[in-house]
Design a protein around this nucleic acid. Structure first.
Lengths: 261, 261
DNA sequence: GCCATGCGTATCATATAGCGATACTAAATG
DNA sequence: CATTTAGTATCGCTATATGATACGCATGGC
């Protein structure tokens, strides 16, 4: 571990965090050796760190299988997060209102580097599980929210982002052609909203409007996703967009607060 | 730090976690010295640990004020949690359905020691912020969900819990009298549901039905909270309870999975 | 305008606390 | 029953975290 030759860097803590990050949607419970394998740490280190996390209540341990799982503390962290994010407090009542009016799933997404992360989700219809829980991180370029946000950036930055930000395949219809993405973003520049089609899951239509800060830049967006079986672009723009934009426009991030690295 | 004279315990990691836990609803952003004060660690340790957490992306740092805040990673942890909790996947579509039918706020709460924690929330009406976000931990005895869960326990355990589990005052009408709580729990034993009244916030009525496992014990509950201005106990029982119980009954925790310490 | 205070940052000698090889135990696998 | 695999425990070594100290930069009181 020569991650940093920095005296202000505590390696053991960093390793512990590696263990926590070993858990994700496809690794929801891990044994000691799986943990060791996934983190690249040796068995002893893994043992000590996992044990510490367990004692400190960050990992639950099944007495039978001896496998580790995220504990309730992981949810408490989300709770603490919410209080620290000035946007959420502002937005929440308005999002509830919106979801009731539309009777469709409404999300709040924030930019997080070159990804977006769903900060709040108000599912109104049955959908796949990943669409109902908060905290999902997706490549910004592959989402309507990401494109809507990006569209508020100066041209130079838009270019660079479309050229370099990551893309990942989720469905057969996920757009991989960066020129098509560029067109979609530039379209969003013109109209002030972005639409995506089957990027994350087939037959899903999503529309997003940016939440624009005092400097003209967005770092969050309100998004609504519906089924392509019952909706099309025209109806989306006619029936959903107005309220969506109204909502986005009334959410003004407290000026001094920008999410910094 | 003589937290544990245990060679399987990594103190630095534990201290790092202390820093994370220093953030809560009333401490949403902290400076270095506040962190040091709140954790009881000295300035140097705090500096090193906070810096590490920052480098590892667990804490954001405002370049201007140099204060730390929870990062988006805290939400990603919730996301990972959700995949690890077998109940949530089961329950989510049914909760969405229920909230649509009732047009009232529906929550999923799990027992976590002597507290309950809100695992999923589907707000349908404007309420206070804390009621709209997941991860809130509350004394089980002060909530309808906690009482409904407790009511599925054998008499001996119920007694002990009502005698010893913590209570905290939230509103002028929070019940502090343990005998009244006992009555409420025993009532839930009889009827299979619990009602609470203004425990967390004034003029809030809540009703909860336990999700009962194969062993007859519950460790989670479906809860619905409404305004006492427009609802009363009778209507709650007549109009909400049936659907609430139906929903709770169709959620069966996969038998082998019990949340272990 | 200047000094005092408080806070964030950086440095460094020291010993403690984390390291990882190894050995032990228990439970699966064939 | 032999064999493997995974979890648990031990222990001497030294790399690593420690915390006292010093520095620089703001803020604000006088």
């Amino acid at each position: 571990m020569k991650t940093k030759q920095n005296t202000l860097y505590v390696g053991s803590l960093a390793k512990g965090l590696r263990l926590l990050r070993a858990f994700d949607e496809s690794h929801s419970e891990l044994s000691l050796s799986e943990l060791a394998a996934r983190t690249g740490l040796d068995k002893s280190a893994t043992q000590r760190l996992a044990n510490t996390l367990h004692i400190e209540g960050m990992l639950d341990k099944d007495p039978g299988t001896r496998r580790f799982r995220p504990s309730h503390a992981w949810l408490e962290m989300a709770y603490a997060y919410y209080w620290s994010d000035p946007l959420v407090g502002q937005a929440m009542p308005k999002l509830i209102q919106l979801s009731q009016e539309l009777a469709e799933t409404v999300n709040l997404a924030e930019l997080s580097g070159d990804h977006i992360i769903y900060v709040s989700r108000l599912p109104c219809k049955r959908t796949y599980f990943a669409a109902t829980v908060i905290g999902r991180r997706l490549p910004a370029l592959s989402t309507s929210a990401g494109r809507a946000i990006l569209a508020t950036y100066p041209e130079e930055e838009r270019r660079a982002a479309v050229d370099h930000w990551p893309i990942k395949v989720f469905t057969p219809s996920t757009t991989l052609d960066r020129e098509k993405i560029r067109a979609s973003v530039e379209d969003a520049v013109q109209h002030g909203y972005a639409i995506s089609n089957g990027q994350m899951i087939l037959n899903e239509l999503a529309i997003a409007a940016p939440i624009i800060g005092p400097d003209g830049r967005a770092f969050a967006a309100v998004q609504c996703s519906v089924s392509a079986h019952t909706w099309d672009r025209e109806r989306l723009v006619a029936e959903i967009l107005p309220k969506l934009q109204d909502t986005a426009n009334t959410i003004l991030p407290s000026s001094q607060t920008q999410r910094a690295l």
